[in-house]
Amino acid sequence: MTGYDYYPGCSLKGTGKPYEESLLAVFGALGVGLDELEDWNCCGATAYMAVDELKAVALATRNLALAERSGKDLVAPCNACWLVLNKTNHRLEDDESLQRTVCSALGATCTVPNTADKEPLTYTGTVNVRHPLDVLVNDVGVDAIAEKVTKPLEGLTVAPYYGCQIVRPLSPFDDQDNPVTMDKLLGATGCTVLEDYPFKTRCCGASQMMTMPDVGLDLVSMLLEDAVARGADVIAVACPLCQFNLEGYQPKVSNLLGEKVNVPILYFTQLIGMAMGIDHKTLGLQRSFVKVEPVLAGRSAHE
């Protein structure tokens, strides 16, 4: 099958490094190509739109223009990047004058990377921005993934946490109120999926964790408390910000709740990689603050 372009976004090169590592490892093992977009820039996330709408759209459009050249779909693993790029596509489609303004500015200033002859960048609106959940379930297929599972994660209970921006306001590849793509993928790994996790699409607080820690703590503790109460050993996530929020403050959450919370927060790609027998270092597991190895060991002690 034809490969995909890959838009990491700023977080996947930083706090979300394990996401990139496990994503590339899993796609590689499945034989699906992922080419990092040459000279991609920050998508603007939620912050830029709060300051300047036109510039925010221009920023995002540059990435789309870069991606259009290959004709391949663009995979954006971070939920926020995914939403920004998809929303930008919709806005350019709906608003002709916006499209003209942005594209003319783009053509007047930016050139195609890696070419000496200063070819101006253009965008005609044809890039499909996809989330890896979508690609893995709908293009590759759960069966193809299950076939590659050599070390099923039996006895591990995993709560699938989608976060908000891949189901709201757009939900092109999954159900808005009860998404199941991650559930399906996790099911293929052989683990026990916590299907009735009621907060699977509740907001984790995103960047408020950084800017207003008390507020963020409130949101995060609710998500953690419920998962733990339902018997989750691990929480699976699809976004670097969700991952950091759920993982980074567990000591504080433990204080708040009056009970010890020590739950590994793994990217769903890491879990798939583990089930495929890919070694933990390649999957970036050593970068976790809350390590999963003790949980895995504790589980086999029951068997």
């Binding site: 090169k13 930083g14 706090t15 510039k55 221009a58 920023l59 007047a108 200033t109 976790s288 603050f289």
Partner: peptide, 30 residues
């Protein structure tokens, strides 16, 4: 975060950052 390599001390930058800055200025002009 530093220890696990999830935070870098090196500023990440795109190659054609001048073009980007220029893009944002032109948008302002418009």
């Amino acid at each position: 975060a530093l220890r696990t390599g999830r935070i870098s001390l090196r500023h990440d930058s795109i190659k054609r950052h001048d073009e980007l800055t220029h893009l944002l200025d032109v948008v302002d002009q418009h």
